[in-house]
Amino acid sequence: MASGGGDRWVPRRVLLRGTGAVAVAVFAPLTGGGMRQAVAVPRGSAEQPRYLTRAELETLRAVVDRIVPEDHATPGGARSGCAEAIDGLLGAFREDPPLIFAGAPFSDRAGSPVNHFAEFLPLDSYEETAWRLRIEGSRDRPERTFNGPVTGFQTIYRDGLAALDEAAVGGRRFADLTAPEQDLLLATSRDPAVTALMDVAVPHTFEFQYGAPEYGGNADLAAWDYTGYPGDVQPRGWTREEVEEPDRHAGPVAPLPGVVPADELVAALALAHPDAVRGVLARSGGLLSGLRGEVGSAVAAAKRHGAVRGEEGGSTDGW
């Protein structure tokens, strides 16, 4: 299991092309040779959602496609399977084991012949209690209301999706609106049901778009392709040479994306530290509004203290 020689490293892209489609290998049952079956397929289908109704799932598909929009070259949240994956989370306990923690230790993307991720882990009663409470809510049960009522994901999604359909005027449903109309509605809605929905739907969509495909999103690993992300690399890992002297693409310096002012982006990148971001996530409660507050205040403070510098050492103009 120790890191091997450089010759053993096969980049994931090569694997992808070499085997046809990794996604097929992930979701199709594995057969033969004492391999375990990849039992848990964590998504329902458009025809047969796990928890939501077909109509709700259609609305959710429209929502996740605004959270991660499809563009000319790359799939959005809908085509990546995020809506079905969220439905899988809402119906997590209709499967045994429930669709909460993927298996371990390896997928089959970096040298393991077996995809352990594909078989979800059994939960113990603590984990089950916690995730049922989070998904189903407290439902007036005395053993779940020790700190007052908890609104579960199921209710947040049901109510939020209904509110979006109601807000889509003119006899249309949310999914019938044009993309700009949908964006406008999401950005301007003051309906608490919509705010609560986006608070959880945004982080969930990112989880399924960018996380391991065994959870039901990231179809065809397209999101790892368009982000150039290597994905999980165990058990192969990286060789000494790949760590110390990696290939680099010399050439003109790529500009930073202009979607935010460069100084704000660079300040935010200072938070891109594995331990720091855990504090950010904890304080945000995993909600979009919490994340905005946390990152926003850190970036504002860095600017206030003159803590961002460009190449010339002084201002950040003209990057």
Binding site: V68, V202, Y210, A223, P257, V259, P274, V277, L281, G293
Partner: peptide, 28 residues
């Protein structure tokens, strides 16, 4: 930082939508 944590960080910076996706594509 790996990918999903980056997505959460950028959600704090720009929310969601095309701007978020552009940041993700930049792979910084």
């Amino acid at each position: 930082m790996p990918l999903l944590e980056s997505a959460e960080l950028y959600a704090g910076l720009v929310g969601y939508g095309q701007a978020h996706k552009e940041l993700m594509k930049a792979a910084l």
